[in-house]
Design a protein around this nucleic acid. Structure first.
Lengths: 139, 139
DNA sequence: TTGCGTGCAAAGGTTTTGCATGGCA
DNA sequence: TGCCATGCAAAACCTTTGCACGCAA
C-alpha cells in the first residue's frame, strides 16, 4: 500500500492548484480544464488517481454538492486537525469553514451521550449559506 | 413545472416500498431489484424519474454514502418537519435518526450567531455510527 | 537500473434522453 | 380524448482499469 512515494511535476501542479484555491472545491473536470488553461495540462487519469490519494490521506476532502452531478474536491491544511472538528460548507460559493470552537466540540459529546451516536467529523459536512452570500442574497 | 399529477400503479409501488422501509436507504438498483423480486417490476427509468421527483418535493432524501458508488434514497415522513431539525445517519447500517431535541435546535442558533452561517437542515446530514453498530463492532 | 507514475484507450457503471406506446383523469 | 407516465434502447456522463512508455530516485 505504498503511496505518494515519488514527487512528480504533475503532482506538484495539481497540489498547487488546490492549495492556492483552498477556499473552493473543484470537480475533476474543472481541475483538468483549469490546468489546461494555465498551460500545464495533466492527464485526466492522473488527476483522478492523485486526488483520490490525497483524499485518502486527508489532505483533500471529497463532497457531493447539491447542484453538481459529480464529486468535488477541496484542499484542507494538514495542521488543521480536521478529523477533530466539524465543517460548514456554503452551498452558494463553496467556502469551507472550520468549526474549531468549544461549543461545537460539545455538540459531538452531546450527540454521543444523549443520542448514542458516534459522529465522524471526517465524513460530516454541515451545509448552508455563509455570511457573505446571505448579504448578497438580500440585495 | 407540473409534477406528480397522475396516480399510477408504478408510483404507488415505489412509494410503498420506500415508506415501508423508511429506516433504510436504497440505491436505484436496489429498488429495481427488490420490486422485481416482489413480483411488481417497475422500469429503471421510471424509478429514476419518480424518485428524483420525490427528492425534489422533500418526501425522499438523497445521500451519497461512504462505501457506495451511486446515490441512495430514503423516505422521510412529511409530518416530521425534517426541514426543521438535523439528522444523523449511520454509515454502517443506513439508519436515519431525527434530531428533534432542544439542545440540537440550539446548535443551529449558535452557528448562526457565532459563525454567521445559516444552516440548511434539508441538505445536512451528520454521519457516524449508531449505538447498535457500535456494539456489534466491539465483538 | 528499478519500479512507480503517466496518460491514452477501452471498459465499466450510473444517469439522462428520445420516442413510441400505454394508462389516468 | 388529451395529456402525462412508462419503459425500451441509446446516448451521455463519470470513473476505473490495462498497458506501454516515461521519469524520479
Amino acid at each position: 500500500m505504498s503511496e505518494n512515494i515519488y514527487k512528480t511535476k504533475q503532482r506538484s501542479i495539481i497540489l498547487k492548484l488546490l492549495e492556492d484555491n483552498s477556499e473552493n472545491s473543484f470537480t475533476i473536470d474543472e481541475i483538468v480544464a483549469l490546468l489546461k488553461k494555465n498551460g500545464e495540462p495533466v492527464g485526466r487519469t492522473t488527476v483522478y488517481r492523485y486526488v483520490e490519494n490525497l483524499s485518502k490521506s486527508g489532505e483533500v476532502r471529497r463532497f457531493y454538492e447539491g447542484g453538481r452531478s459529480s464529486a468535488t474536491y477541496q484542499y484542507v491544511k494538514k495542521e488543521n486537525h480536521c478529523a477533530e472538528h466539524m465543517h460548514l460548507k456554503c452551498t452558494e460559493c463553496g467556502k469551507l469553514i472550520h468549526l474549531g470552537c468549544d461549543f461545537m466540540n460539545g455538540v459531538c459529546s452531546h450527540i454521543e451521550e444523549h443520542h448514542k451516536f458516534l459522529v465522524n467529523n471526517s465524513k460530516t459536512t454541515i451545509l448552508g449559506i455563509c455570511e457573505d452570500c446571505l448579504k448578497n442574497g438580500e440585495k
